[in-house]
Design a protein around this nucleic acid. Sequence first.
DNA 1: CGTCTCTTTGACTCCGTTCAAGCTCCGTGG
DNA 2: CCACGGAGCTTGAACGGAGTCAAAGAGACG
Lengths: 248, 248
Amino acid sequence: MPSAFHSHPLSRFVRKCESIAPLSDAERQAILNLPIKVSALSARQVILCDGDTPTHCYLIVEGWACSYKMISEGRRQIVAFHIAGDIPDLRSLHIGTMDRSLGSLTGVTVALIPHDSLRDLIVRYPGIAAILWRDTLVDAGIFCEWITSLGRRTSFEHIAHLFCELYLKLRAVGLANGHGCPLPVTQNDLADALGLTSVHVNRVLQEMRSRGLISLSGRQLVISAWDEVVRVAEFDPTYLQLEMRAVE
Amino acid sequence: MPSAFHSHPLSRFVRKCESIAPLSDAERQAILNLPIKVSALSARQVILCDGDTPTHCYLIVEGWACSYKMISEGRRQIVAFHIAGDIPDLRSLHIGTMDRSLGSLTGVTVALIPHDSLRDLIVRYPGIAAILWRDTLVDAGIFCEWITSLGRRTSFEHIAHLFCELYLKLRAVGLANGHGCPLPVTQNDLADALGLTSVHVNRVLQEMRSRGLISLSGRQLVISAWDEVVRVAEFDPTYLQLEMRAVE
DNA sequence: CGTCTCTTTGACTCCGTTCAAGCTCCGTGG
DNA sequence: CCACGGAGCTTGAACGGAGTCAAAGAGACG
């Protein structure tokens, strides 16, 4: 129960926007004045389904969600993890029908923002439109890294790369602590994001632990040997476009 | 030497925009009036390199290019194929430094558009900005499919899926013919896009041929059994957001 | 006609999967 | 307070899809 309780539901979103470009007072106020409906969901719920045509956007206020695709025989591919401040289905604002599903991984609280209000916001404030567009470009950069990891990195490198990415993303919105950050997903969820089986994820995690690179237990990831993990993953944070501001 | 010779270098780009949303005469004219510098490159050239900070955007007028990432030991992952009408580095307009490289696959002719002119265009015509934003969202949808293919589809399904995607993309800009389309890339290029080795791509292609699904030779792909290929790939074209207009 | 790039083939290897079982932790109810 | 149950984690053994290595064909082009 962190600070989200005491602050505006959209505060982490504002923070994320400001990490992309400065906001004027009017812009910040316009965002905070968006008419939202906050609601809480339990873990492992489907929020939006492939093919849906939503009339609202979902903003993650707290908790973890993911975008995923299902194909035959129960195969699932997670294509993105979403944390506080993300708008996973911003796409639906421009493209009516969902081409992937959105689900909660943990319990999440979301803010629903009507498409109309968002459209109005970006017409009145082109600067905000630019920030959101830029955000979708950063997400595209993340997709490229995932593609590269899936196609050409070993499973060890892939997992190391993902951990670096998640840690920095969480840190950028003030959700990391020292060398650690929450990672409230099962090894099976990780496997579905990595294109591996949970058995193999487990084995690689053990090797990372035994080499003293990380520790992971109780939904908490600690990257004990950051430099070494960065090195084996060949991790270059440029694509995340985070100006590393101080941790709150 | 098709019609690109006789028409404006940006005509396929205009066409692509119009396949996303209607353009007013003023908007179309504004695009065609962009100050461009057309230039021709030979095959297998690096156009932009990971880390570069270009001051122009490249628009593909003719030929094939690709975005890719290089990692250690010469490993290459192609993350996107680009054809006539695409602006592969639109991202550089909003995010200064490239997080991937851009190279020619075949000989290509490109149009260089200064960032300033493009920025001016989208400020004066928010409708064009919306189209370009939407285009980056469609590209993100393509990335998701590639991630799903890499992570959870068999190599056979993956290749079938890619062929469906490429065929429809080419058809949408009038570059397909009947059940066929150009595919002027080597099996090695395909392998680097599919996350496989060229040896294995070769074997899968042979199986597809022997099953009568496709033929591929002389840089020309023919999908002889479209329905069957769609079925095995579980291909759903929604993510491409193409309103299937008549082939020119 | 020779060279260079691309495709094809075969034999062997290995990374990651599959299947199956046991273990650990934790919340719940008797 | 402890027994129970279930989800998630861990382990082992056997398997298989795709990689590796190496060499031989096929085209394309000058």
